[in-house]
Simulated scan of single mutants.
Amino acid sequence: MQQKITDLFGVKYPIIQAGMIWNSGWRLASAVSNAGGLGLLGAGSMYPDVLREHIVKCKKATNKPFGVNVPMLYPNLEEIIQIIIEEGVPIVFTSAGNPKTYTQHLKNHGITVVHVVSSVKFALKAQEAGVDAVVAEGFEAGGHNGREETTTFTLIPMVKEQIKVPLIAAGGIANGKGMLAAMILGADGVQVGSRFVASEESSAHQAFKKMVVAAKEGDTLLTLKELAPVRMLKNKFFNELMELYTTNPTKEQLIELLGRARAKRGMFEGDLEDGELEIGQIAGLIHDIKPAATIVNEMVTEFELAKKQATLL
């Protein structure tokens, strides 16, 4: 396996569990780290005091490296960064914002910094800002996504051609074959989100997990590009949103329909009708809920087997 990512993070496998809102608490992050990957806490759905609590519990649950994903469009950003520094978190993944804002500040405190992008343009900006690695996330990914609709298969080789820092592939990767494909295209590691949503340790509501497992091809769609593009499962709220789009709505009308805490209501509280259910296209290949360690081990086993088979072609 690629050593750039394992050496950078001090982990056994180049597998990163995405720091997803309402899914990535200390139980999931520590389980993935203990299994040899890199677990991330999802700060985007945590108030500062809640984040500190999850960091403290994660440190007690694992002696392996773990990190925090920080969406830079959320409030309390300065306080969140300060807590990460105070608690000695070794790795930070930033997203949804300008990487120049905090990269050097974090690196001055000995923290490894990675930024999530959806295009070559922003990958170059992240490299210029001094990040240690870049996550290039394709259009297939769940949750908030890029507007360009560039797929992972296309994005990874284009970004690889332009940057010198290690590259992590994300979007539509849930098993060892997907991991191998990403690496053949130029990735040094993979970030996996949706597959870990359907894990026993995920903080997502059990009803949401079951809906992910039941999802089929075509059950998700990227929408709300006027606000912040998000891929979600089709449900009653989604249908209401599509109906509103037929009227050529203003941004204000979209914001009014979206309301507050819609994602929490869906993914964390289990409101499958009126909640926002964020998940990737790869949900169609997720058929069960299992321990995070099993997911990591199966990915590695399938990766090694697929690699051997590929050499025979």
Rank of each mutant, 00 (worst) to 15 (best):
A214H: 02
A310M: 15
A170F: 05
S95I: 06
V296F: 02
A29T: 01
E161G: 09
D271R: 03
Q17P: 00
L227E: 12
K57Y: 02
G39V: 01
A169T: 12
K57R: 14
G97K: 07
G275C: 07
V120N: 04
Q281W: 03
Y47F: 08
E87T: 04
A170Y: 06
H205W: 03
E304R: 10
E79C: 15
P90I: 05
F122C: 09
G36A: 09
Q281I: 01
S95G: 13
N297F: 12
S45Y: 06
L222I: 13
G186M: 13
P90G: 15
L155T: 08
S33D: 06
V213E: 04
E140P: 01
P71S: 10
K107W: 15
S30D: 05
I286K: 04
L222R: 01
K209A: 07
A96F: 14
V56W: 03
G171Q: 03
Q127Y: 10
G171H: 03
G189K: 11
E217N: 01
I84Y: 00
E128Y: 11
W22I: 00
Q3C: 14
K4M: 13
L277Q: 03
Q191R: 09
E302N: 11
G142W: 00
Q281H: 06
E278A: 12
E86K: 15
A293C: 10
F238A: 07
I168M: 08
E87V: 00
A310R: 15
Y245I: 08
W22S: 00
K234Q: 13
G270E: 04
F196N: 01
K64F: 03
P14T: 09
L28N: 00
P291H: 03
V114E: 13
A123L: 10
L224C: 07
G178Q: 06
G270K: 03
G37C: 09
V213F: 03
D188R: 08
V197A: 02
G88N: 13
H109V: 15
V32F: 00
K160H: 11
S30W: 00
G42H: 00
P166E: 09
L241D: 14
K234N: 09
K251Q: 14
P291T: 06
K177C: 10
K100T: 11
F122R: 10
G10E: 06
Q206F: 07
M179T: 05
N145F: 14
R231D: 06
A169D: 04
K64E: 08
N248T: 06
G25E: 00
A43R: 01
K12Q: 12
I255R: 15
Q162L: 08
R260A: 13
K57P: 03
G266Q: 06
K60D: 14
V190I: 10
L244W: 05
H205C: 03
V192D: 04
Y245W: 14
E87Q: 08
V11R: 09
T101I: 12
M232S: 13
